[in-house]
Design a protein around this nucleic acid. Sequence first.
RNA 1: GGGGCCGUAGCUCAAUUGGUUAGAGUACCGGACUGUCGAUCCGGUGGUUGGGGGUUCGAGUCCCCUCGGCCUCGCCA
Length: 593
Amino acid sequence: MLRSHTCGALRADDVGKQVTLCGWVDTYRDHGGGLFVDLRDRYGLTQVVFNPPQTPDDVISASKSLRNEFVIKAVGEVACRPQGQDNPRLSTGEIEVRVESFEVLNECETPPFTPGQQEIPGEDLRLKYRFLDLRRASTQSTLVLRSHIIKTIRDYFDKHDFIDVETPILGRSTPEGARDYLVPSRVHHDAFYALPQSPQLYKQILMVAGYDRYVQVARCFRDEDLRADRQPEFTQLDMEMSFVDGDDVIAMIDGLVAQLAKEFCGIDLPTPLPRMTYDEAMERFGHDAPDLRFGMELIDCTDLAAESEFRVFRGPAESGGRVRGINAKGAAAKFSRKRIDELTEYVKQDFGAKGLAWFRVEDDGKLWSPISKNFADILLNKFAERMEAEPGDQLFFVADTWEVSCKALSGLRRLLGEELSLYKPTDMHFSWVVEFPMFEFDEEGQRWNAMHHPFTAPRPQDLELLRTSAGACRAQAYDLVINGSEAGGGTVRIHDQEIQKQVFDLLGIDPTTAEDRFGFLLDALKFGAPPHAGIALGIDRIVMLFGGMDNIRDCIAFPKTQKATDLMTGAPGAVDRQQLKELGVRVIPLSES
RNA sequence: GGGGCCGUAGCUCAAUUGGUUAGAGUACCGGACUGUCGAUCCGGUGGUUGGGGGUUCGAGUCCCCUCGGCCUCGCCA
């Protein structure tokens, strides 16, 4: 060991000890006669002092060459700081190390930015020089948090008799779900592996194999466009249980979430966590992962809209659409016409809404709007009553198809919730959304798609609907929602071949295709598959939410940019012609593709 | 593929309606200073305003193309 202590270890108790510290020069203050260095490692900062009489003259003059981010080893005695010169902002602020000798372990070129500086550099620079960015205290504490969260999760499942089984990274492409990352096979011309989107099929196989409680911290890959909370490779806490139903899985995760909340937020979370059906979530919030840190629920006014002469409202109301509104309580003064125009543009551009209607509630309780002349007074009063409008409120309405009204209003609700500070940044809310639809209709392909995946079991009482009305069929599926983010999702799996066949049939997967794609799973189901269910949690998102971050890149050591590149390594990059030849792969020029 | 924001010194930012030699803080270099902790003080280096084209007497500023970063719709569970 080159060091006797870390830079976060020393306290007043250690005064008088001879110590050796190693670390990076976080800042230095040259006083001519002497020099102060804040020496940094991942445990903290300790002030090391190059000053007479403890520090010999030649050592002091040598110390003048120190610069930011030099790596040094300093030997000296721990001393109390002079009276009144404690630094209460440092945990080591009562002491300092008076240097007797030191060694530069490595110099540092003038860095593009320093981890100790006040301003955080642009994200592109941080990603290019990730090794510098990762030296910053805040990124280090995030990765420490991540490590601790994962340890808590692992311990929790270990305590509950789960076993950790690794599954392959090189697997087989399944056209379901997201776009696969492909890896060409050298040995087999014209054949490709796919990186796993999740270990879904393997964990079901493990259930058939009798490993009735499986868990894995699994890296997953999806070749889709990125978002603030989506990376092309990400980490799931994947688990599966046999001889259980959905409630058992939910209860198991409830226990885990309560422990995480206790340990990392200091919250005593009552369990079971609240549950809401998908249908209720869409009706009340317009979203399948509603942010329940605040209210401002969607209120249906379709019946009232149908009574109006206003075509914009009456049209959708009479043609199967919906007219719904949200009430921004007491916020009318905060919405300038310009801001309302921006919000209108937002719902139009992002969700295809035709517009955004709005009313201000006047002091006399009457609704006022540029469009209010289109409504009889008596009808306006009904709207006001339905919306629980009080003077000073601002109402927004979207009149459109059910789908557009959900998307536009939930988007608006999320935006306004943040803008109007309807919750504290430290608030945490955990809940479940359950009973998702089994299928969603793909308008383009004019066919049903699995909402989760094709092995999701329908609710027992909905088995009949598989034949009669697929759209109404609800799944034994459940999503964990934290602060309006989908933090995880799982299902009870089909273990009955007959039901599986029906589902495939509905999805338009014929027996030959099914056999070709999932034959191994169907085989396994024939050989004594126990009832099983499971879930996968998004570790990155959970760390992001627990750490109060708004961006998934900040809790991943080496994340990718929005265009899925790594600015540090330059990945993805061109490869040697010979490599391609071995793989039997030829690149089509961009102009031809 | 669509929409939006951004790109000026190593870094963080400023620059009036399109107007003279593009500034500040910090970093860096040199000097001063015996206790600082965002040290201070004095001096200095540092710019293809992301790149290309255009409009104009004149472009950091306006227009077009392009590259890059971020947010978002589509996509994705």
